[in-house]
Write a protein that binds this DNA or RNA. Sequence first.
RNA 1: GCGGACGUGGCGAAAUCGGUAGACGCAGCAGACUUAAAAUCUGCUUUCCCCUGGAAGUGCGGGUUCGAGUCCCGCCGUCCGCACCA
Length: 852
Amino acid sequence: MSTRFNPFKADGHWQKIWEETGVFTAPPASDPRPKAYVLEMFPYPSGRIHMGHVRNYTMGDVLARYKGMTGHAVLHPMGWDSFGMPAENAAMEKKVHPGDWTRSNIEAMKKQLKRLGLAIDWTRELSTCEPDYYGQEQALFLDMYKAGLVYRKESTVNWDPVDMTVLANEQVIDGRGWRSGALVEKKKLNQWFLKITDFADELLEGLETLDQWPEKVRLMQENWIGKSQGLNLTFNLVGGDDGIDVFTTRPDTLFGASFVAIAAEHPLAQALAENAPRLQDFIADCKKGGTTAAEIETAEKRGFNTGLSVEHPLDPAWHLPVYVANFVLMDYGTGAVFGCPAHDQRDLDFARKYDLPVRRVVAEGDNEDSTFEGDVAYTGPGRIVNSHWLNGMTVDDGKAAVIAKAGAEGWGEGQTQYRLRDWGVSRQRYWGTPIPIIHCDFCGVLPVPRSQLPVKLPEDVTFDVPGNPLDRHPTWKNVLCPNCKEPARRETDTLDTFADSSWYFIRFASQPDDKPFDREEAEAWLPVGQYIGGIEHAILHLLYARFWTRALERIGKIGITEPFAALFTQGMVTHESYYSSERSISQDGSITTGSSRLVYHSPDEINRTAIGATLRSTGQDIEVGRIEKMSKSKKNVVDPDPMFDQYGADAVRWFMLSDSPPERDLEWSESGIEGTWRFVNRIWRLFDTIEDATGEDKAIDKLLHKAIAGIAVDIEALTFNKAVAKVHELVNAIEKAAPSASRTTAIRTLARLIAPMLPHLAEEGWAHMGGAGLVSTQPWPDHDPALLVDDEVTIAVQVNGKLRDTLTVAKDMDKDALQALALASDKIIRTLDGATPKKVIVVPGRLVNIVA
RNA sequence: GCGGACGUGGCGAAAUCGGUAGACGCAGCAGACUUAAAAUCUGCUUUCCCCUGGAAGUGCGGGUUCGAGUCCCGCCGUCCGCACCA
């Protein structure tokens, strides 16, 4: 009597056994087996697991389980990135404490994750909002402080007026806050910074060693660091002692200079503006300019002539006018540029507008004219012309020559410039790691003594007004100065939550009570062997984590420089969206005529047919929208829980691995999950109807061994869609095969092959077929290399490159025999129609191509 | 504007070294079983044609080669990142 696989019993049953037997608890660091540290980016506890998490954690799980079966000591942990704004927003909206909200979310999400049947070592679970984690982070912060990698300075910051906090440059997208979407304002504040720029070169060079990272991510980080080499030089003011420092990457074009421009925020501009109301107005105008793509592209190059002049460093008699210009940025280089209009588009636009000289100094082909025509700057290579002693040099030689001369004469020096800024980590928020610093009126800024760590967040805080609850807490910030014992104040800023995620992978590897980590233990596991997460972290998290690791290395805390040996960025889970148009009804109940708004419907309210979609409740026709990332606003979210209820964990896991290559987007579909559910049951029927048969089936043997070898390769390469296809092929063949010992072996082996991907089904089948122990702890099956080679092959016979016939021959048939056989084929004789072959190309084991 | 990736049936895709394009899955069609349905099973499914066969075909146009989805040149399109970076 055949039975159906019952995931509703099996899932919970095996999950309980895995937990009770502790099979996925990582062994001690001293374990002699090769280590496999598999890590997926830990989630923010927003409340619910979504399909993106399911995909991410399924992929990591398959690899972790496979590594376990192939004799590795596996570390596969899970934790919670649990500090951050949403908890405070929830506190404001729902009048709950951020801690309560966060911890109950963690509980709910953990329950959901467990339903996926992940092979996770839950004994190492950590949550960044707990003092046992953030206290150790404070210790690391103080280590960096002591080593001079942390500093405080007043600086212009990106201020998010909605979230009422500072944002790092990396968190400003198109001039807007990455979370709130609010237009970011400039504000001056005292801020804590981590010296990531000290590591700019290292972080850049380190990218070259990361050969198991996606090229795309490496390139994005390279661009973000933005290294450029050039010359820092001083233009002396005519009739003054001062000069203007300028950075250029084109010192070779120095003889083409026609003006110097400074940023509106440049100290010189500010000083001049004090007595010049028109300049004040101009500067105010410059600040209004937006930073979005469209605004920048259409923004006119505008300048204000200061009336000042500077001397050209190569010819003091040559004077250049000084402008304040809207296109010069204060926070890059020195906040001042020299303009060479012929060879820079912005400078040319500016020069044409203000009628400044445009002098060619790089030949464009044969064109050496000193007058430059047209409105398109020439930025290509060429010989230097109209430049006295530089004439005839290449651009590169010219750059070197000018830098050398500037150095020798003392008016400038070669300089490497980075786009990367130091990491501003101060956040004016409650729900984050308190910065362990004390401010004393007499002794200044002091670190909290180690014995007083962790600096814990106070529980009794209010969120009824905007701003930082720590700052307005009645007593928390009052503390005695550790030095003079007089009353002093705690720092009330907290750390950017990206600090929390910059070292959690180290804490996973080693979590002593009395220090952040044990060096030896951490080094045994690190670097992470395979890290998996979304591409959205390509810069922020992945750059900060690389920096933090290098900072710890520099101060002698750990012996590794790169935290993630291999990185994989998986695609999103998408779904069609469904919407109908409705007349919009404004809040007072009146109907706004002439306009309508889109009302989105969730997939479970919809009847989807091949032609269209209707609303289940009313039968109303519904528009089928784009396939896009699952999001609450589009209501195209599919919640994992009901899917587990309906199909069980394995069908959901199989869906996540099927069809789409893992780096590409995966479209969730009803028919797709139905299909994977049917397949789970097909495998079960094989396990259920296994029989003790005898006899050999060579074809099944070969296919099985090819599957063993191929699936292993696919899992290691994370090409799960290909592994899935190979399982299908094997199952298709086993189903059709007549009973034999080979077939029975194949079915038993199949349980092991699917164990990483369909672990509950595999355990259930393994037990059902009388297997000993857990299939999860079985070794990955061996394959016989001899069975991977076919002794008969089908070779193609082409005439002029076109397929005309195929021949099935012995694998090692020699060239002459193949040629003779091909020429004897009826189809070939017919195609040749009496023509004599001019040439015959024979590739043994592959094809014969007859050129007629 | 700069940088990058991608483009293959109705759909998701595969083709690892330049060697039989479309494995595998979804959807669809036909059939079997069934009173019926579900489930399951079998077969078909790139397009076109003068259909025991033939022609075309991997975004478009060229090129290299006995042979190109794969390599080279030039376009077009889609997506992603950065962006007044001197």
